[in-house]
């Protein structure tokens, strides 16, 4: 211990516990609002605004019951969110995989510029493109459709998806595909049977990014949809009414929006971290 203290110039306990303290602060910073939202969704309105706040109280599930059973239930919004998020994920991952593979493998002149151009489309803020897209969508009859929203979300996800998948394909040695082609595979078979299975984790990561973006998007959903296709964030925003804000349902809706993402994240985390090429090549 004394040696390491000397080398870093920090006292032993700081070196040892400092990182934990820092991570603890970050964790509280991140998790406290979510925790607040979660417990508030279980409180009756009066105790929600008590000061000092009560830690022990009689929990109620009334807001959750209202949300699904009461007036203006959240279920159609939830279904719309799921359809749009999955559609976006499928489209972004498929196109991103193909595009990323091309960018990784093809020997194109000006490949760097092409790659930069792809990511640069993501640099404009969403609000800049929303109005022109609205007009385009109205000509194409894509307003108030799931497909319209999926296309809008995919447009914004695709640059990330392509870049991410390109870096995953870069990790797969080209020799594997060459070996497959000599073994009797066509280029397509080498891609499908050798490279594609190896970028599974990358496709998972891309899907998560696409789903999170789509699930949380508010602006596109607000402008391009009406009753039939509105998503969860719109449902939450509608709880701010002229007669007041329905805080309990806002909190409960927040929890319902958050929960699938957290569950999803925990499930795929392990797969994302696992080794990518799994010892394909001895360098």
């Amino acid at each position: 211990m004394s040696k390491s203290t000397a080398s870093s110039g920090l006292p032993g306990p700081v070196r040892r516990y400092g990182p934990y303290a820092f991570l603890g602060v970050v964790a509280i910073w991140t998790l406290l609002p979510l925790f607040w939202m979660a417990i508030s969704s279980l409180k009756i309105r009066r105790s929600m605004f008590e000061f000092p706040p009560t830690i022990f109280f009689d929990p109620t599930l009334q807001y959750y019951v209202d949300m699904f059973m009461g007036s203006n239930p959240v279920t159609p919004f939830l279904i719309n969110s799921i359809i749009v998020a999955l559609g976006t994920a499928v489209l972004s991952v498929s196109l991103g995989t193909v595009g990323g593979y091309g960018l990784s493998r093809l020997d194109l002149r000006g490949k760097k510029h092409l790659a930069f151009w792809i990511i640069s489309t993501r640099m404009a803020p969403i609000v800049v493109v929303v109005i022109p897209l609205f007009y385009l969508y109205s000509y194409l009859n894509l307003l108030n459709t799931h497909l319209g929203l999926i296309i809008a979300h995919t447009t914004f996800n695709l640059p990330f998806a392509i870049w991410l998948m390109r870096s995953f394909f870069d990790e797969v040695p080209e020799a594997l595909e060459e070996a497959a082609r000599i073994d009797g595979a066509t280029k397509w078979e080498a891609f499908r049977k050798v490279s594609l299975p190896l970028v599974w984790p990358g496709m998972g990561a891309t899907a998560i990014i696409a789903i999170v973006f789509s699930w949380n998007d508010f602006i596109f959903a607000l402008i391009f949809t009406s009753n039939a296709t509105q998503t969860m964030p719109i449902a939450a925003s509608q709880l701010v009414t002229q007669t007041g804000t329905l805080w309990g349902r806002v909190m409960a809706t927040g929890v319902v929006i958050l929960l699938p993402m957290v569950t999803f994240g925990v499930i795929v985390k392990r797969h994302l971290v696992s080794g990518l090429t799994m010892g394909a090549v001895k360098e």
Binding site: E178, A179, A180, I182, V194, L198, T277, M278, A280
Partner: peptide, 18 residues
């Protein structure tokens, strides 16, 4: 390559890791 009926051993083996 697949039509040439040859087999190749690569420097880094290129075994399919999956």
């Amino acid at each position: 390559p697949r039509e040439r009926d040859i087999a190749m051993v690569f420097q880094n083996y290129a075994l399919y890791p999956h």
